[in-house]
């Protein structure tokens, strides 16, 4: 049937839905698919619209005039923006490296059938998926006991270990590493760490890529940790900067009449609407560019994780 489908020229449709049905499918799926990316395109258009156009016709897919002002403003933000961009990249990279290392080191013994404590450690990580202490106790432990407040650790450490990723990684080990290989390496006198790094890791590279991508996405999109633990502007990641801009804008817009002259001044110096949209573009762009390439890995990982999880 598959070959027939490939050779399908329209006249010959073996065991396939009718042409009419297929067009309906195309219509439904196509519309939804478009709806999934149109908001992003809309935001890009807004970021290139001129303030004038927005005053006249509001946000529109066809602005009356275009302008690069938003991007000029973004670059004029200077330190605040670049600092946040740096923070986002730093948190993402450091977090991913640490997290993936810990994940591989935890998942590998779990996959070893000859490891005695495997049942215990499986339970240790799995149980945290179904029960926990809740937000406030976790917050108090992290902040008061472990000193995570206004530092990079607060933005990295609370997300380091994910039982979900451990399961994905363990499954990759199970499906791609033959046990004889470990046996052979052990007979050759290779230590456990040497075996893992020299023999096993090269085989599970796709698994590592998958887990690394999922983790990196998690860190890139993170803002809740910043909301909880960080008040220092220097440490804001991009996502949080964006959220804060919105909050400030609204606060000032609501209260400008009360604050008087200084308020009016503050409103005038506000990040403009288009500029905030430009920051959104800055956040989404790295994902949108890399996405078509990493999608394959993420699909593989999520499929494994959700089925075995």
């Amino acid at each position: 049937m598959t070959t027939a489908a490939k050779k399908n020229t329209g006249a010959f449709r073996l065991n396939m839905v009718s042409r009419k049905t297929e067009s309906v499918f195309h219509l439904i799926l196509g519309l939804f698919a478009l709806a999934c990316i149109i908001p992003f395109i809309f935001v890009i258009i807004i970021s290139f619209s001129s303030e004038n156009s927005i005053r006249q016709i509001g946000y529109s897919f066809v602005p009356s005039s275009w302008s690069l002002d938003a991007y000029r403003q973004v670059f004029n933000l200077g330190d605040a923006l670049w600092r946040s961009y740096f923070n986002s990249f730093f948190i993402t990279i450091a977090g991913t490296v640490l997290s993936v290392t810990m994940c591989v080191l935890y998942a590998y013994p779990l996959f070893r059938k000859d490891y005695k404590l495997r049942g215990f450690f499986s339970f240790l990580s799995f149980f945290t998926m179904i029960f926990g202490g809740g937000l406030i106790p976790t917050y108090i432990v992290c902040k008061n006991l472990l000193g995570m407040s206004n530092n990079y650790a607060a933005l990295i450490v609370p997300m380091l270990v994910s039982p979900f990723n451990i399961i994905i990684m363990r499954t990759f080990f199970q499906t791609s590493v033959p046990f004889d290989l470990i046996e052979a390496a052990t007979i050759d006198g290779s230590g456990e760490y040497t075996t893992l790094v020299r023999v096993i890791l090269p085989i599970v590279k796709p698994g590592i890529a998958t887990v690394a991508l999922l983790t990196a996405l998690g860190y890139w999109n993170e803002w809740f940790l910043c909301l909880l633990y960080v008040t220092k502007r220097d440490l804001y990641p991009l996502q949080y900067l964006l959220m804060e801009m919105q909050r400030n804008a609204e606060f000032l817009a609501r209260n400008s009449s009360m604050i008087g002259a200084s308020g009016a001044q503050a409103v005038a110096s506000l990040p403009s609407q288009t500029m905030r949209m430009a920051v959104v573009v800055f956040i989404v762009l790295p994902i949108a560019c890399a996405y078509p390439f990493f999608q394959r890995y993420v699909v593989a990982g999520l499929t494994i994780g959700s089925v075995k999880g």
Binding site: M102, G132, G133, P137, T138, I140, V141, L145, P158, V161
Partner: peptide
């Protein structure tokens, strides 16, 4: 990590 960040808070209940 699990003991500190996942299990210790459980006592916080």
């Amino acid at each position: 990590w699990l003991l500190l960040i996942r299990y210790l808070p459980m006592f916080g209940i």
